[in-house]
Computed example of a mutant assay.
Amino acid sequence: MEFQTIRVNESGGVTRIVMNRPEVMNALSARMRRELIAAFDGARGRAIVLTGEGRAFCSGQDLQDASDVQAVDFERILAEEYVPLLSRITGAPVPVIAAVNGVAAGAGANLALACDVVIAAETASFIQAFTRIGLIPDAGGTHWLPRQIGLARAMGAALFAEKIPARQAADWGMIWEAVPEAGFEAHVAARAAHLAAGPTLAYAALRQALRGSFEQDLDGALAQEARLQGECGASADFREGLAAFLEKRAPRFRGG
């Protein structure tokens, strides 16, 4: 696919996907959703970074992306376009970092929260803007928010639709970290390089275990944990990690 709304590059084992509609704050059009799905399907890096061009990460659903905005079939769009995109993010075989460079609003905020790690510039913010136009949080918002920040904060964020600065989001546990804008890109690059050099199989297993933990009781979680640890313990990455530990050197993981 020839990309028109995003840019993709691969370097040093990292796939970098950039939403590239800065004139509309990277609003999610139907074409952008298709292109993002294609980009995740085609990613070959050992880590993926999702970010936005310009002053925004993503302002959410492009409400101008229809001839008759009032006739938009949100149920169909969510089921047929957002669910496949979110499944590409959560089901990616490698860790996914959301590098939130600016405002992340509506579906754009929840696109970020679907990623494994959210790193935001301190000047960035998150807005569950849906009630401002008579909607509810979507694109996974009703799932991620209460799990990450608790019901009380999730309810307030959704009902009042107020801006949550990146530092507050980090303090709440909504995101991993908020870092100074100066050096933000270099910091994200270093984080992505760290993951790209890590044990890919173990990363995949721990993501599966942690993401599935809310749907399991303790017995189920322990059984899954044992099964996944067995797979990791039989891997070349574990053998290399153990050898590096004993030899007091940095490991050279290859994946598998």
Rank of each mutant, 00 (worst) to 15 (best):
I6V: 13
E231C: 08
I97C: 11
Y82G: 01
G230D: 11
K163D: 15
T142Q: 07
V69W: 09
L195D: 02
A202H: 08
D217H: 04
G141D: 06
A158P: 03
M19I: 10
N20Y: 08
Q229W: 10
A189R: 09
A109K: 15
Q64K: 06
L151W: 11
A98Q: 05
G183H: 05
V118P: 01
F245W: 12
S125G: 13
Q168A: 14
L63Q: 03
L135R: 14
L222D: 12
L228I: 15
F184S: 02
A157Y: 07
T90G: 10
A109L: 14
A244D: 00
V117W: 09
S125A: 14
A244K: 01
L206F: 06
P22L: 07
R254Y: 00
R153P: 01
A98P: 01
R46H: 09
S87I: 00
G198H: 04
V94I: 08
H143R: 11
A124M: 11
F245T: 06
Q216W: 03
W172E: 14
M1F: 14
A38T: 13
A197T: 10
I119L: 15
D217F: 04
R211H: 09
D237V: 02
A190P: 02
A99H: 05
L210E: 05
I133A: 02
W172F: 14
P251V: 10
A205S: 13
F253Y: 15
D68F: 04
P146C: 09
G173P: 05
F214V: 13
R44S: 14
G102N: 01
E80W: 02
A236H: 06
L145G: 05
A66P: 00
T200K: 08
I37C: 15
V94A: 13
G156A: 04
Q64V: 00
K248R: 14
L242F: 12
T131L: 06
P146H: 03
E35A: 04
D171G: 10
A109E: 15
R132S: 06
L135K: 10
G54Y: 00
Q128V: 13
T90M: 10
N20T: 06
R252W: 01
L85N: 03
A166D: 14
Q208C: 04
H187A: 14
L63E: 04
D219T: 08
V83R: 07
S11F: 06
R7M: 10
G212P: 02
G156V: 01
A27P: 08
F130L: 06
L86K: 00
L78F: 05
L36T: 03
I133S: 08
Q70K: 07
A152Y: 05
F126P: 01
E247R: 15
R239E: 15
G91K: 10
